[in-house]
Design a protein around this nucleic acid. Structure first.
Lengths: 218, 218
DNA sequence: TGACAATACATAGGATTCCTATATAAATAC
DNA sequence: GTATTTATATAGGAATCCTATGTATTGTCA
């Protein structure tokens, strides 16, 4: 980001600023939501992440990569959740070094409770039209895909990375894509960022699908 | 955000997730960029904020509101920057209780240096087409405006809040708006998030301008 | 097979953020 | 002229978050 005073920042810089502003609001909100259930933002984020993954459990390193923090920091927060009985550690049968962290029923309940709380960010997104929301989602998917390609974030459980994703195979502009897992057509507004049924495709398959997906919106 | 496992999250929830993912990447990036010049993300954010405001200086409370943290936390970080010689405190002539924090030349240099560093987020935004970037900026402006209306964030120095903003007064779809400060037409791609020449309009004026602005993109 | 490197996690130690509560000083209200 | 509000600083403490290192397990390769 260029920071020359008295100069007009580039479009890209201004988008970055805008994302920062929204991120600030989300962080403030995360503090209050987490505080309401006796947690802090990092702990709530971990718990939400684990709940979304179900009872299969995740490794400490995967959680660290998702959060974008170091492994010891993750251990700290996981232990804090452990003391509160919201997650549990299990030995990984396939690797005696590793362990599997999963949310307990109490953890699921806590996340649901936090989700009930009013969210200013959610309200702000709702203020956009349905079409604007759809466009915004697609733009975010593209940005996230790029962040993933450059290694800034780990591989995401998104449709566009998934082996069940068939982009632009239908004529219906409302639902041009197809999910081979549920065998149904769907459109841009249904794109997933973090899907439970996700199964990562090979890099070449991902790239091919990505090209076809992008062709739809030049 | 609803977190029912095995249920498809709403479009709004998925957009929230997407924003979170991008925010995570930006936070990670902020750590490395700030670390390269011997700061931490909060300190760099404060410094960038002060540099954008020029040498006029900002009060501690304003900085705290911008960051979304408490005032003592801001005092901590400002003092850290002070020790490093990157900011300076000056007495406010109009109010002996208050003080004015401004970036020093060394602070400006540090921000410029951090700005030179490669940014994965910037690259990811660049991967969007010009039109997509423009749409994204407009969507972010709308979200930020809404966050401001609900009090989640303080008033932003955006065009849409500014007394010099004249929305949708020209026929040119590329440049329908007008800035009375520089007396020039401009378009959605030139909208500012944080303008140096900003001067806040009265709430009623803002609302009226906002209605006219929104009429352009229903 | 056996030494060596890599991996997964825990621990140690320390700096810093970030909070609430409170103190100080100045401005404002009545 | 006293009381309240406002701007900032300070005190104290919890928790994040880092790097460096330790321990146990797995993988590699001669």
């Amino acid at each position: 980001m260029s920071n020359e005073p008295d100069a007009t920042p580039s479009l890209v810089d201004r988008i970055g600023d805008g994302l920062s502003r929204v991120a600030t609001a989300m962080r403030t909100e995360a503090w209050t939501a987490a505080d309401a259930i006796g947690l802090n933002p990092t702990q709530l984020q971990i718990l939400t992440f684990l709940v979304a993954r179900g009872r299969s459990g995740m490794r400490v390193k995967q959680i660290a990569a998702y959060l974008g923090v170091s492994q010891p920091t993750t251990t700290d927060s996981v232990n804090a959740l452990l003391r509160k009985g919201l997650v549990e550690k299990q030995a990984d049968p396939s690797d005696a070094r590793a362990l599997s962290v999963a949310a307990t029923p109490a953890g699921l309940a806590a996340v649901r409770q936090a989700g009930q709380l009013a969210s200013a960010t959610e309200d702000a997104i709702v203020s956009l039209s349905k079409l604007e929301q759809q466009d915004l989602l697609v733009h975010l998917v593209k940005i996230i895909r790029n962040l993933q390609t450059t290694g800034a974030i780990p591989e995401q459980r998104m449709c566009v990375n998934c082996r069940y994703f068939r982009p632009n195979v239908h004529d219906d502009p409302q639902a041009p894509h197809h999910c081979a897992f549920v065998d149904a057509a769907f459109g841009p507004a249904q794109l997933r960022i973090d899907c439970g049924e996700y199964d990562g495709a090979e890099p070449e398959t991902q790239q091919a699908a990505w090209r076809v997906f992008n062709r739809g919106s030049p």
